[in-house]
């Protein structure tokens, strides 16, 4: 469904992504692991069109999306949440969701229904008329997910959706992501808590220095030396 071939991204001569090749089947749920600076968020930015790519191709359902504008990539079915919560604080909760719901809906009535349904799934129906900026942090995290739900995406790029939350809230958010998206939606999840990744993603990718160093079952990766090596730098020391 998502085919990434030889993807390269450069920042001022530094290779943030040095030729990634990844294949994501439809509906797959895949963790993206790696230390800070390994290229996880850059990979998401490249897929969603926010950074220019220096080489390689990205295909969604056979169609090349690399080089398209971000809004076209969104319309093609790529949803995105941000590591630091990014909302329209001056708009109501419902108004945060309505425009994006419209990209997947047939008409304005359908868009409203989809937006309300997405808020319902995320448990935010009661807050729909208040400004997003007045929400608590946990609700803001859930609103980001509600927005992605309303988009009915083929692919969700979730960048640390549990960042800044308590353990209980994190578990709730992971459970929300797990039930809110059907088998048609593939999920790529960046997450530092390996337990959270394991709960959602049977398979994980491990990035280091812009390269894919492992692609395996999450449970195996947990036991495998490579994860610890990459995180603690033993591999890089050589």
């Amino acid at each position: 469904m998502l085919e990434i071939d030889g993807l390269k991204v450069r920042f001022d001569g530094v290779e943030a992504l040095a030729g990634l090749t990844i294949s994501i089947p439809a509906g797959a749920r895949i963790g993206v692991l790696g230390p800070n600076g390994s290229g996880k968020t850059t990979l998401f930015n490249a897929i969603s069109g926010l950074v220019a790519i220096a080489g390689g191709t990205i295909r969604l359902d056979g169609r090349a999306i690399s080089g398209l504008a971000p809004h076209q990539i969104a319309a093609a079915g790529v949803a995105r949440t941000f590591q630091s919560v990014r909302l329209f604080h001056r708009l109501s909760v419902l108004d945060n969701v309505l425009p994006i719901a419209g990209t997947a809906a047939a008409g304005s009535h359908d868009a409203r229904e989809a937006a309300l349904a997405a808020l319902d799934v995320a448990g935010l129906s009661a807050q729909r008329d208040i400004l997003a900026g007045d929400l608590g942090f946990y609700d803001q995290r859930r609103l980001e997910i509600a927005r992605a739900v309303a988009q009915r995406p083929r692919l969700l790029l979730a960048d640390e959706p549990t960042g800044g939350l308590s353990q209980a809230e994190s578990d709730q958010v992971v459970a929300l992501i797990s039930r809110a998206f059907g088998p048609d939606t593939a999920i790529l999840l960046i997450e530092h808590q390996v337990a959270a990744v394991e709960a959602l993603c049977p398979r994980s990718l491990l990035l280091a220095e812009g390269r894919l160093v492992a692609d395996a079952a999450t449970s195996d990766m947990r036991r495998d030396r490579s994860l610890a090596d990459v995180y603690f730098g033993t591999r890089l020391a050589h």
Partner: peptide
Amino acid sequence: RMLRQIGEDPLLAEVHGIN
């Protein structure tokens, strides 16, 4: 709503499907 979304955060609006 699109207009207001663009006004607050054009990059976020773009990622959410708005030209």
